[in-house]
Design a protein around this nucleic acid. Sequence first.
DNA 1: TGGTTGACGACAT
DNA 2: CATGTCGCCAACC
Length: 113
Amino acid sequence: MSFQAAVLELVTKIPRGRVATYGQLAMLLGRPRSARAVGQALSHADGAVPWHRVVNAQGGISRRSRMTGMMTQRIRLEQEGIVFRRGRVVLRRFRWQGSAASRKRGGFRFDLL
DNA sequence: TGGTTGACGACAT
DNA sequence: CATGTCGCCAACC
């Protein structure tokens, strides 16, 4: 399975009302240094994948070709009940914790967040 | 093959 | 807090 497919599949598991960061997804996939590649993979997402639930490490919405895309993403997240504070998602409250299996596989240290 | 491109991120200043 | 630098790496060409 391609890295890209793995990313899209994982993003599908982020529940409504929660978000994950690019780096976090990379870690959950066992490739802690592939955050950029995660973003690249997301650019090919179709309507079946909740791409709007992925934000950067600061809780902010990453820039993309069109400014309108950023607005769309923020509005969608707020409609799910996610709260922004000074332009960023309050990660302490809304970050997805992932599955236990993924946590173990990727070695993600949630206790350090 | 080998070079380029980013929806990134950690750090230094 | 705002910028800039540098390392990374899957896709694409």
